[in-house]
Design a protein around this nucleic acid. Structure first.
Length: 787
DNA sequence: AGGCAGCGCAC
DNA sequence: GTGCGC
DNA sequence: GCCT
């Protein structure tokens, strides 16, 4: 590797090597887009291989490697142990290292070293051997931190290239004193120079926040920040000669380059023991090991995955699969007929496959499980299958649908051969439904009334939902969405979907998810999920995200700050008012509300509303309106005949809230209507309530809706979520816009889909009319369950 | 290769 | 403007 | 992740 051949006779040479290493580095971590950083940092490593960088690989027991656990990687422990492992594992590196150590630790070398670098030493006024550097010395500030001595530069720089780039002594401007999170800290960067622009920025930033940067090994060092491409073994090789010991002193924090970035962003010294700051080891961990790591006991079912790894996101390669699904035009596809991916084990439960996927369409399945009304709706869709569902501007969409589906009976066209998978897939997905429009929008078919208890795919759904939630935690919005949509599709199926081909046919299930569905069907597990939920940080994330008003961003901050428990948050974290309440009633808000209690809550509110204004009509929306047996919270919509603005109902709301508060029913407010005059917003109230005799706080929302918007609002607040988004997407495709206020047409969008005008209100008050106009068959609320 | 719904409220 | 919730 |  990098230390390769060269003999290093002196430290110059030694650092030259460092530079060489360094030159390969590059990154863009210093961007401060919080979202991006969060994503990068908290998203699970996309390939199972890269997972190895953190806790997983560390945790796996590797008899031959001594690093048994995470803590071994941290500064506080085990440097000796790891060093021995280095010796064993990487002889070359070790040889170099020890040579280095020998060379560098010779007395004269040390002399040269310190002689040439007095400024660094002198820059610390009180070279207190004790780590307690007072902040006052730090206040002597910027220049103290900078001024690398000529001597050191000479030594550290590759003379030629470095010269010009030599930064003009741009004084580091310190942030206000109280923000200097690194005050009193002396940081040693590896490589120990600012040659790379990104590292330079990192160093400068650290100094802005009070750090002292040292290029030389001094006893004052509190932190070692290592560029991410350095492996632990390399670092130890470099440091041992400097430290003259085999392990890093316990009081020195050794972390990778994410550390300062996080600290600065969060304005706090984050917990350095988190896995994301661990320096990677050079321990090779193979993909195979990685994959089955958590599933040791289940080896029997192990999969025989091919090695093609072009797909960085998961080890799954669907190519064969896809071809299989294309080629197998035989109606009798076996569940395990797909080549090579699974080792079909005999103990895999024989799926109760009703029939070949080719002969059964999703729509038929839906119909089987459907009540009469939706039956009708579906029949309607199918009847209109080849006809325009809408009377208007559908032209652009039609071609695609006719192309894919002009005549289902002629599907063997030569064109198919050119793009086998896509064509096949597309056509399959659309042919039964007839119209591309209907296939693409969940709202067209809605839910089925197949309950979770009886759904043949309930187990698969459960697992995929967990995947969805996992991705949600990771702020991977779109994967989360995809999995939820896939669940929605699955929920509508009347038969157990247990093969790739079956699954792949269905809308919103692509190669990746189809593969996973098959894995679940065969093994009962999803390794990806098993892995994911083992991540230590995932627990915390789950915990913190349970707090009302704490989302992925805040939760990640908490984690980076090192908080481990809700109590940590109570005592240490700064929380907003709402978050405080959410924390105080963590368990309350996490408790589902049984339907009968929902009804009881409803009665209380309605009884209170009546005397205030008998004309106001309270409606319980949300999952209650969809007929759910329990709900997470309760939503009220208040509307009144003749009203056209939410504002018209303000008086009602304030009166209602104050009365309910005085009776003790409402226990707190979380969000109250804003009172901007110029705009008729100010329509929602969020808070908490209790049922008399029951101490559990419940989340409750009030919504003011003018009669003119009640239809749209009902759609909105009845949901579910997927159904709504689907409706809106459909509207948008028709150059219309659907929101909680109404359905608008002739919406014009400019470049960058900027809204050019509001569009003309088509319908707002009549729920059914909105369905109609959008060409969506009417669905009762209970049939809008799509996920 | 780009989109994925759109808005109100707190901070 | 961001974060969050719906 | 899926879809266009």
């Amino acid at each position: 590797m990098i230390f390769e051949e060269e003999e290093m006779d002196d430290k110059d040479e030694y650092f030259r090597q460092l530079y060489a290493l360094n030159d390969s580095s590059d990154e863009e971590e210093d961007t401060n887009n919080a979202r991006e950083i969060l994503k990068q940092s908290s998203r699970p490593p996309s390939s199972s291989f890269s997972v190895s960088s953190h806790s997983f690989s560390a945790r796996r027991s590797q008899p031959s490697k001594t690093l048994g656990n995470i803590s071994a990687i941290h500064r506080t422990t085990s440097a000796p142990a790891s060093s021995t492992s280095v010796v064993r594992e990487t002889p070359l590196l070790t040889r170099k290292s020890s040579k280095l150590r020998y060379d560098i630790s010779t007395p004269e070398m040390n002399q040269t070293f310190s002689a040439s670098t007095p400024p660094t030493l002198s820059s610390i006024p009180a070279p207190a051997p004790q780590r307690s550097v007072s902040t006052s010395e730090l206040d002597t500030g910027p220049k103290l931190n900078m001024v690398p001595s000529a001597g050191i530069n000479a030594m550290l720089s590759k003379p030629d290239e470095r010269k010009k780039r030599k930064r003009k002594e741009t004084p580091v401007i310190l942030v206000p004193e109280r923000e200097r999170i690194f005050a009193g800290k002396t940081i040693f960067f590896i490589p120990p120079n600012d040659k790379h622009s990104v590292r330079e920025a990192r160093i400068t930033n650290a100094m802005k926040y009070g750090a002292t940067w040292t290029k030389k090994w001094t006893p004052d060092i509190t932190h070692i920040i290592v560029d991410k491409e350095y492996k632990f073994e390399q670092i130890m090789g470099m440091l041992k000669p400097l430290m003259k010991t085999d392990s890093i002193p316990q009081n020195i924090i050794l972390v990778n380059d994410k550390y300062t970035v996080d600290c600065i962003r969060d304005k706090i010294l984050v917990d350095e023991t988190q896995s994301r700051y661990i320096i990677r080891r050079d321990v090779p961990v193979t993909e195979e090991q990685e994959i089955r790591q958590p599933a040791e006991p289940r080896k029997a079912l192990r999969i025989q995955r091919r090695k093609s790894k072009k797909d960085q996101d998961t080890p799954d390669d669907h190519t064969q699969r896809s071809e299989a699904s294309t080629q197998s035009q035989h109606p009798q596809d076996q569940p395990d007929s797909s080549p090579g991916v699974w080792l079909p084990t005999t103990n895999a439960e024989p799926p109760v496959i009703v029939e070949s996927p080719r002969e059964r369409s999703p729509m038929l399945d839906v119909a089987l499980g459907e009540g009469s009304e939706l039956d009708t709706a579906i029949a309607e869709i199918m009847r209109f299958g080849d006809l325009p569902l809408d009377d208007d501007d559908d032209e652009e969409e039609r071609p695609s649908s006719s192309e894919g589906n002009t005549d289902p009976d002629h599907d063997g066209s030569s064109e198919e051969d050119l793009r086998p998978r896509r064509r096949t897939k597309k056509r399959k997905k659309f042919q039964k439904q007839g119209d591309a429009n209907s296939a693409a929008y969940v709202c067209m078919t809605g839910g089925t009334g197949i309950t979770d208890e009886t759904n043949p795919n309930r187990h698969t759904i459960q697992i995929l939902e967990k995947m969805s939630k996992y991705y949600g935690r990771m702020s991977d919005t779109w994967r989360e969405l995809s999995y939820r949509k896939a669940c929605g599709t699955l929920r509508k199926q009347g038969v157990w979907i247990c093969t790739f081909d079956q699954a792949f046919e269905l809308p919103f299930i692509g190669e990746r998810i189809a593969t996973k569905i098959e894995e679940i069907a065969i093994t009962g597990h999803l390794r990806r999920l098993d892995n994911a939920e083992l991540e230590p940080e995932d627990h915390l994330l789950k915990l913190f995200l349970g707090i009302y008003n704490v989302g992925p961003v805040e939760a990640s901050k908490f984690i980076r700050a090192g908080y481990k428990t809700l109590d940590d948050l109570r005592t240490k974290a700064r929380l907003t008012k709402c978050q405080q309440i959410g924390l105080d009633h963590y368990d309350d808000f996490a408790t589902r509300i049984p339907r009968d209690q929902m009804t009881a809550l409803g009665e209380i509110v309605k009884a209170m509303a009546k005397p205030i204004d008998p004309d106001v009509n309270p409606i319980i929306g949300g999952s209650y309106r969809r007929g759910a047996k329990d709900s997470g919270d309760i939503d009220f919509i208040f509307t009144k005949p003749g009203t056209t603005h939410a504002h018209d109902l303000h008086y009602f709301l304030s009166s209602l809230v104050s009365r309910l508060t005085s009776t003790g029913f409402l226990t707190c407010a979380l969000a109250t209507p804003s009172h901007r005059r110029d705009d008729d917003s100010g329509s929602k109230w969020h808070g908490a309530c209790v049922l008399p005799g029951n101490p559990i706080w419940r989340r409750i929302d009030f919504l003011l809706v003018p009669e003119s918007e009640i239809g749209a609002a009902l759609i909105y607040f009845t949901g579910d979520d997927i159904f709504n988004r689907s409706m809106r997407l459909l509207a948008s495709r028709k150059n219309m816009r659907l929101n909680q206020r109404g359905l608008y047409k002739d919406l014009m969008r400019g470049p960058g889909r900027l809204k050019l005008n509001e569009g003309e209100l088509v319908e707002g008050s009549d729920e059914k009319r909105i369905f109609e106009i959008l060409g969506v068959p009417w669905k009762k609320p209970e049939n809008r369950i799509c996920h």
